[in-house]
């Protein structure tokens, strides 16, 4: 090893560390303002105003919330399984955070550009459910317990549907690398896979909502039935970790959707043809616009629909989404072979 390679390695590490720092800061700020954004969006949809008190138009509300949660008394149920109780929010939050590493924000901005990015994201997201489940178990509370059970069943079944819905994309792109998938979309006829893969897209959207425990699939939390579900016993900062985890998971899902179906940081060629000046806009802007549009969609859904029941949710997952996703794979495969 020459000093040259050594320095090169050092610079590489440094770049990665900087990238991580940037992503983490963006991620956390995102969470802070995603909650604000959510409250404002839903507020206005419900002819309210949302937060208005802290700062102009309530802009500092997320910080006020954060500070409040940080200084709140940390309660632990008496007969809780302490170690596991401490561990659960960390697992939940960490698994969500790690996934940020595989998201290609732009053609040259990705922390870990690995070949099996898509699979990796699934694997790590799957770990998050352990956080939910063990928090429900360790809280020693019946409501939390039911919430944890519901959640693990739900996440497991919807992960399958989601995975299947993405197989179509993999077939079309011929790769599991997220950057490759975006590139493949850029060169495809429609510019984004959401159009040829409309079935897969719809399934993905439904599964993504379910996977992140959002309305109408927010049964693990179901505030009117289970009060808050698995994290009902958590207070203060531990609660905040769950909260962060949930919003980061939403961000991951939105990014995944953007990358796999909406063309990532690229714009479809026909748009660029009509409005050529748009190509000077950096890719990350398009990426974030798409992600936030998807997140807006999340909120929008939440403001509109009621909640499913647990068994209905399971039957939708297993009896509708998975068969349809399988059929979609079949058709995509056939078309790919025939063309």
């Amino acid at each position: 090893m020459t000093p040259d390679t050594f320095i090169k390695f050092g610079i590489d590490v440094l770049i990665i560390v900087i990238k991580i720092a940037v992503v983490l800061v963006i991620g956390l700020l995102h969470v802070a303002y995603a909650t604000y954004f959510e409250r404002k969006v839903i507020g206005h949809m419900q002819v309210r105003l949302g937060p208005m008190r802290v700062g102009p138009h309530g802009l500092l509300q997320p910080f006020a919330d954060g500070i409040k949660l940080f200084f709140k008394e940390d309660l632990i149920p008496e007969k809780a399984d302490k170690v596991v109780f401490y561990l659960a929010p960390v697992i939940f939050m960490a698994s969500a955070m790690v996934n940020l590493a595989f998201i290609p924000f732009s053609h040259n901005f990705i922390i870990a550009d690995i070949n099996i990015g898509l699979l990796f994201i699934f694997a790590i997201a799957g770990i998050g459910v352990y956080g939910i489940f063990i928090s429900g178990w360790a809280s020693n509370s019946k409501y939390a317990f039911i919430g944890g059970l519901r959640s693990s069943a739900q996440v497991i079944s919807y992960e399958i549907a989601m995975g299947f819905s993405l197989v179509g994309v993999m077939i079309m792109a011929g790769s599991l690398n997220l950057t490759e998938i975006v590139r493949a979309q850029e060169n495809s006829i429609f510019g984004m896979y959401a159009i040829p893969q409309i079935v897969g897209f719809v399934i993905f959207v439904i599964a993504a909502v379910a996977e992140t425990n959002r309305t109408p699939f927010d049964l693990p939390e179901a505030e009117s039935e289970l009060v808050a579900g698995y994290f009902v016993e958590y207070t203060g900062f531990r609660f905040a970790l769950f909260f962060l985890g949930e919003y980061i998971a939403m961000f991951i899902m939105a990014s995944l959707c953007t990358v796999c179906f909406l063309g990532g940081w690229t714009l479809p060629w026909y748009v660029l043809k009509v409005l050529p000046f748009l190509q000077h806009v950096p890719g990350i802007v398009w990426f974030l616009i798409k992600v936030y549009a998807f997140i807006f969609f999340y909120y929008w859904i939440r403001a509109t629909v009621p909640r499913y029941r647990y068994d209905q949710l399971m039957s939708i997952g297993w009896k509708i989404l998975i068969p349809v996703a399988l059929a979609n794979i079949l058709v995509t495969g056939l078309v790919k072979i025939l063309l």
């Binding site: 206005h44 949809m45 002819v47 105003l49 208005m52 403001a303």
Partner: peptide
């Protein structure tokens, strides 16, 4: 809900 998003709030 979207149309209400752009309507005046009653708060």
């Amino acid at each position: 809900t979207l149309s209400r998003f752009f309507s005046r709030s009653v708060t």
